[in-house]
């Protein structure tokens, strides 16, 4: 554990909580891509199946459970509780365009050709592109609410902080995980355009 890893995790947690609270408090999921949220729920589910097979630390287990719980709570709010406010017409990105190629890649490029490891690899690849339906939705409607941009900022910041974590771990522990590093770079790059808008325009974005 180092400072980049910890702040990365907290940034990730902040993003998840911000989105959940925003939907809950406003009783609306307008402007939020339900498809991105389904993909994130799928990411956490496939990555954290190791909860059943290996124990890393109390911190690790607690965070995993919170991430999974929040992901499903968010999907529930969007598709069940506040379904009437869900903007399905603008959430038109096709999930299979991400899930199918990513599944194929996970089978081809992985650390170990085993069931759990392929699911872990799938989750890493899928996470790197899971935000695309949300970004697509914003580009389609041409705007994003302030709180939505805070959500995206913390979600993007988290993986960027992990990149520093991996540099740290490479120098001080000799540790590196090429699959996570490359996917993490792709993921961070996807947010660059958004970061630029967030910093220059600040808060609410209208294209």
């Amino acid at each position: 554990m180092n400072i980049f890893r910890l702040t990365g995790d907290l940034s990730h947690l902040a993003a998840i909580i911000i989105l959940l609270l925003k939907i809950w408090k406003t009783r609306s999921c307008a402007g939020i891509s339900g498809k991105s949220q389904i993909l994130f729920a799928l990411v956490f589910t496939t990555r954290y199946l190791d909860l059943l097979t290996s124990f890393i630390s109390l911190y690790n287990t607690t965070m995993k459970v919170i991430y999974i719980g929040c992901a499903y709570a968010t999907v529930y709010l969007i598709y069940m509780k506040f379904k009437a406010t869900y903007d399905g017409n603008h959430d038109s990105f096709r999930m299979e365009f991400l899930v199918v190629p990513v599944g194929g890649l996970a089978c081809l490029v992985n650390h170990d050709f085993s069931f759990l490891e392929i699911l872990w690899t799938f989750s890493i690849y899928l996470e790197s592109v899971a935000i695309l339906p949300q970004l697509f939705m914003i580009s389609k409607t041409g705007e994003a609410e302030t709180i939505t941009t805070h959500y995206l900022f913390f979600l993007g910041l988290y993986r960027a902080l992990y990149l520093f974590n991996w540099i740290w771990r490479f120098y001080f522990e000799g540790f590196f995980d090429m699959i996570a590093i490359v996917a993490g770079m792709v993921q961070t790059i996807l947010y660059c355009d958004f970061f630029y808008l967030y910093v220059t325009k600040g808060q609410g974005i209208s294209l």
């Binding site: 190791d50 097979t53 890393i56 690790n60 991430y67 872990w120 974590n165 090429m178 996570a180």
Partner: peptide, 10 residues
């Protein structure tokens, strides 16, 4: 060492 399974990150 490089990567060792299981994965210890989130």
């Amino acid at each position: 060492h490089a990567l060792q399974l299981p994965h210890d990150e989130l």
